[in-house]
């Protein structure tokens, strides 16, 4: 069953088509990738999925709900979480506080509960804290919970973003260039982490990536886009041998490079 289905998505800014008639789907429990050369419109697709852009036309069905044109926070509540291409942590807050932001949409306490601090509120706070610590544990940085997030190394800041996304208890996790800026070892750890998220937590994953090696290693299904249009789809091998994909990535003079 498809967890996410994108049908005939169209997006244009000031007359310029960014996404043209794009359709693809992500199966429940799979690891899927969306790849394409620079400026192909990958991040725009993510922004449409998560509600930051309003597509001009088309439909997005997520877990049986039409989410197109819904507010980002509502989409997150439906169970879609994301990370950002450039880190977007709450820089002056502690790592734990950062992760706790993910639990916001799964908790309820309002101003009156905050002032009264009654039993239900205290239980909720304790549960939030516990769950977020588990998320930090899962991504492998429990020792940093009291650190200010901007003091962490780049790789660890990425992990905080992951833990924060996991804390929203998502069904689908969107990763926007997760390998950007990571060294070889960190990339290997990343691949293991992506697999663990799917296998141990049962969360479906859709990622955008430049690093072809990583994409080929983890994804079961790859959708390739260029100029906002789908040019190929399939597993790693099929996509790698598709002449359209080679052309889009390398240009027409591929024999020179080879």
């Amino acid at each position: 069953m498809a967890l996410l289905e994108v049908k005939n998505l169209m997006l244009s800014f000031a007359g310029l088509d960014v996404i043209k008639d794009l359709s693809f789907s992500v199966e429940n429990g799979s690891i899927a990738s969306l790849i394409g050369p620079n400026g192909a419109g990958k991040t725009s697709v993510f922004n449409c999925l998560t509600g930051f852009y309003k597509p001009n036309d088309g439909d997005i069905i997520f877990d049986g709900n039409r989410i197109v044109r819904k507010k980002p926070h509502k989409i997150t509540k439906h169970g879609m979480a994301r990370t950002f291409q450039n880190l977007r942590l709450f820089k002056s807050m502690t790592v734990l506080d950062n992760v706790m932001s993910g639990m916001h949409c799964r908790t309820k306490a309002g101003p009156i509960a905050a002032v009264l601090r009654h039993g239900a509120q205290q239980r909720e706070e304790a549960e939030t804290k516990k769950f977020c610590q588990e998320c930090l544990e899962f991504v492998g940085i429990p020792e940093f919970e009291d650190h200010i997030s901007s003091n962490l190394s780049y790789g660890n800041q990425r992990r905080v973003e992951w833990a924060r996304a996991l804390a929203t208890k998502p069904k689908l996790l969107l990763l926007d260039e997760p390998a950007a800026g990571l060294n070889h070892d960190e990339k290997q750890q990343l691949i293991a982490l992506i697999k663990r998220i799917r296998d141990e937590l049962g969360i479906t994953i859709l990622l955008i990536e430049h690093d072809m090696g990583l994409v080929m290693k983890v994804s079961e299904k790859i959708t390739v886009i260029d100029y906002g249009q789908k040019i190929a789809q399939g597993n790693a091998e099929e996509v790698q041998n598709n002449p359209k994909v080679i052309e889009a990535y390398l240009g027409k003079e591929e024999e020179e490079i080879a």
Binding site: T76, R88, K91
Partner: peptide, 22 residues
């Protein structure tokens, strides 16, 4: 409180806060 943290998230980065379901 939960609300106080949410104010701080929004103050620091509105878009990230929105993406986190706030």
């Amino acid at each position: 409180s939960r609300l106080g943290r949410a104010w701080q998230y929004v103050r620091e980065d509105e878009d990230a806060a929105e993406a986190m379901g706030i």
